[in-house]
Amino acid sequence: MPLVKDPLSPQPPPDDRVQQHMARWRQEGSLAALFLPRPFCAETCADPATCDTARLLAGDEYVQRVTSRLVTSVIDEAGALDRLWDDLVSTLGARRPPTVPADALLRAFAGHGTDWLATRRGAQRAWSYSDTAELRDRLRAVLLDRLDNQGRDEAALIGALQQTAHRLHARQGEPYPACHLVCTQDPALCLYRSAVADLVNSGRYQPGWLEADSIDAVSEDKRRRRTWEVCQDAAYELIEFPSDELPEPARTALDTAARRVCLCFEQQMLADDRRKAPRSGRRIVARVIEEAGL
């Protein structure tokens, strides 16, 4: 078979010329965005190295936990963004390669970090692609406003994020026996189940919870003090806890949210405990709710 391309170019162009030509072709017109890892990279990522680093960090389990805690807290109390922002910045800074500028990495992570979180929650809750994209875009807008405008439009953007999150986390039915006693929002919401499920599945609190469960099971007064302590330790990983210096509305909102996360954790741990009958689990949940003061 004859080599049909030879007559077209008896002298093949050198590699560097091909490279320059293809780079120029990719940058012309509207084609450049097609070669980006994600559509938002054109807005968030300064260069391929920064983009790659942000994508790598978005897959880091500890970074994911810090990101999820910030977002879960902001959905309940808008001021959490100010208080937890340094947690995200320092977590990324500790993992930033020296060749990647800090500001550029934060901006790239505003795209890829929120993309990871929205995709994860969308998969857990079976959202449509459009709903997942809406949450992702709301989250990215909040972080970019923080970086670009010092939070100038923060109130409106967080309000829009909370509205979307509430719509997507509307509770349909009762996943666990005491959900209607724990999460009493009207309309009913299920804001914490997915984040709690990730923590439960990690197994980090399994040994401590089993030990506390065994100790409380033989306590004379039948209270669940040790179990409640483990629930609080676990919930602290997932959401901001209230502090005395916060204004009363913020302190009340975070206190209620933290207790709900604690009890969501207890219900999921019990649901995963195959040693107990459902009736026993319901009795234990009732006692832990008493410890929570709800």
Rank of each mutant, 00 (worst) to 15 (best):
L139G: 02
D216N: 00
Q232C: 09
I215D: 11
T256R: 04
R225T: 02
D103F: 06
C45Y: 12
A250R: 01
E229W: 14
P101K: 07
Q11T: 14
R275N: 02
R138A: 01
A195Q: 10
E61A: 14
R136K: 00
I239V: 04
I215P: 05
T252L: 01
I215V: 07
D6V: 10
T72M: 05
D76E: 09
F241E: 05
L144R: 06
L144K: 00
G113E: 11
V4C: 10
E229M: 13
E248Q: 06
P278W: 13
E77S: 06
G59E: 14
Y62K: 14
Y192F: 08
E154W: 02
P37Q: 09
R287Q: 06
A58K: 13
R120Y: 14
D255E: 01
E220R: 06
R140F: 03
I75V: 02
C190I: 01
P207H: 11
R55C: 12
A80C: 04
G113V: 04
V182F: 01
T164L: 02
A217T: 00
V218Y: 08
P13K: 14
W85G: 03
A94I: 07
W209M: 10
R226V: 05
T67A: 14
R279K: 15
E291C: 03
S90L: 12
T184G: 04
W85P: 04
E154H: 05
A23P: 07
V66R: 11
M269G: 04
R38N: 12
R125W: 07
R224A: 04
A277P: 09
G29W: 12
R17E: 15
L189H: 07
A235W: 07
R275M: 02
A217S: 08
T119M: 04
L92M: 10
I284T: 12
Q150P: 01
E28H: 15
I158C: 01
L254R: 01
A195M: 10
C45Q: 12
V63E: 12
H166K: 06
Q19V: 09
T164A: 00
T53M: 15
G208K: 15
C45H: 13
P177S: 09
V71D: 06
D221N: 08
L238I: 02
D76S: 06
S194Q: 07
P98G: 10
P207A: 14
S73Y: 03
Q124V: 13
A271T: 12
H180V: 10
Q150W: 05
T67V: 09
L263K: 04
R125N: 10
G113P: 11
L92S: 08
R204E: 14
D216G: 01
P10I: 12
A42S: 08
P13D: 15
P14C: 13
A155F: 09
G203F: 07
V288S: 02
L161T: 00
T256G: 05
S219Q: 08
A126D: 14
F241Y: 07
A102F: 15
A33I: 06
L143D: 04
R125A: 08
C183G: 06
L8H: 12
T184N: 04
L84E: 02
P278H: 14
T184A: 00
H112R: 08
A195N: 11
I239E: 00
E134M: 01
P207F: 06
E220W: 08
P7I: 06
R171A: 10
Y129L: 11
S30M: 07
R120H: 13
S128F: 08
E237I: 00
